Amino acid sequence: MNAQISLIQQIDHLLPQTQCGLCGHRDGCLPYAKAITEGEAANKCVPGGQPVADALARLLKRPQLKAEPSAWPIQIDGRPQQMKAVIREDECIGCTKCISACPVDAILGAGKLMHSVLSDLCTGCELCIAPCPVDCIDLIPDPQPLPSEQLRIAQQNDLRARYYAHIQREEKRRLDRTGPVVRAEINTQLFAQLTQNDAHTPHIEVAEKKRDLLATFDTKSTIELAKLRTQIKKLEKQLSVRDDATKRALLQDLQQQLHALGA
């Protein structure tokens, strides 16, 4: 199992971390990496293009396959043109749906206020376009020069960390969410399992476990409070009929316990 996790992590480190879902795995690069180890074709990363498909073939010792085609022109490094999202701000209605959809938190804004894209962080994943109800988001070519391999790796690591921070925050909100979920349902258990032994990857914790523990604690506290209140009322009623030093001392003790529990 450890060998498989290590291989999944090696594959994931070759993927561009756009978290775009164009490979068919809408919850990010890591699930695609896992699927590759289970036999899925390693040429489906559209933004990675032929360089990533070839690197994966070498790592896995598989035949080289032609990369899935992109809608954008191919650059001199063999990868598709990097695109960036731009919001036409005068048309933005501040619905926040693009903010929820962005996997790397590259969009700033608030409800009923204008939104803006942080161009340096945008991966061009296109996930913000479909949820926009007024179609005010465009994709434009990235004007920056092609990054060096060292810079590309640093950018991928940063994007991975941002996505995992996004996942962690969304996981904490998930159980209390009442509005629509714009992104695909994320398999947080998978991310938690595959990040726990990687020193270079932020570890994901599953909020549901914490929620269960909290719910158990809350339930126990509620039961204890109910018992205390019942005992206090019974003693107060008894003492109103006939005073008793022992029962009055017990009443004071129960009242202190109730106060300690914050009730």
Rank of each mutant, 00 (worst) to 15 (best):
I36E: 02
N197T: 01
E224A: 14
L235F: 04
L56C: 06
C98Q: 09
P51Y: 03
K210D: 11
I11F: 08
H203T: 13
G124H: 02
L214H: 09
N197L: 04
A53R: 10
A260T: 15
E224W: 10
Q196I: 05
P103N: 04
Q168T: 08
E236Q: 15
G109C: 10
I129H: 02
K220T: 11
E126F: 02
A3R: 13
A71C: 03
L235H: 01
P51S: 03
R58F: 02
I74N: 01
I74R: 04
D90W: 05
I76H: 10
P69D: 02
K247W: 00
E68R: 10
Q155Y: 04
V46L: 06
R173I: 03
I93A: 00
K84R: 15
R229F: 02
I129Q: 07
E149W: 02
E170V: 00
Q150L: 09
L258R: 15
D12G: 11
L258P: 07
M1D: 12
Q255N: 14
D90P: 00
R169D: 00
G111M: 07
I76R: 13
G48T: 04
N157Q: 15
I129R: 03
I153L: 12
L7G: 06
C20L: 05
N157M: 13
D158S: 13
K84D: 01
C128S: 04
P143C: 06
Q4V: 11
A106N: 08
I36M: 05
T178L: 09
V182L: 15
E224L: 15
A3I: 12
D176V: 12
L30T: 08
E91I: 06
K210F: 11
R211K: 07
T222R: 14
D27A: 12
C122V: 08
A71M: 08
A199Y: 01
A71K: 11
L30I: 10
K34F: 08
Q252M: 07
E38H: 06
C136Q: 02
A41E: 13
G179T: 15
A245N: 07
T222H: 12
H200M: 09
Q4E: 12
T230Y: 06
C92F: 01
E236I: 04
L139N: 03
G28E: 07
Y163N: 14
R88M: 01
P69M: 04
K234Q: 11
V181S: 10
I107T: 11
G94S: 02
K34V: 13
G49H: 06
I186E: 10
F217S: 15
E126Y: 03
P69Q: 05
L15M: 13
A57Y: 09
A101P: 05
T178M: 06
L151G: 00
A184D: 14
Q75G: 02
A71L: 11
T18S: 13
T230P: 00
T222I: 07
G111E: 07
A207H: 08
C20E: 03
A165G: 10
Q231L: 09
I5G: 00
T201A: 05
D105W: 02
I93G: 00
A35G: 07
L22S: 10
A35S: 14
T222A: 15
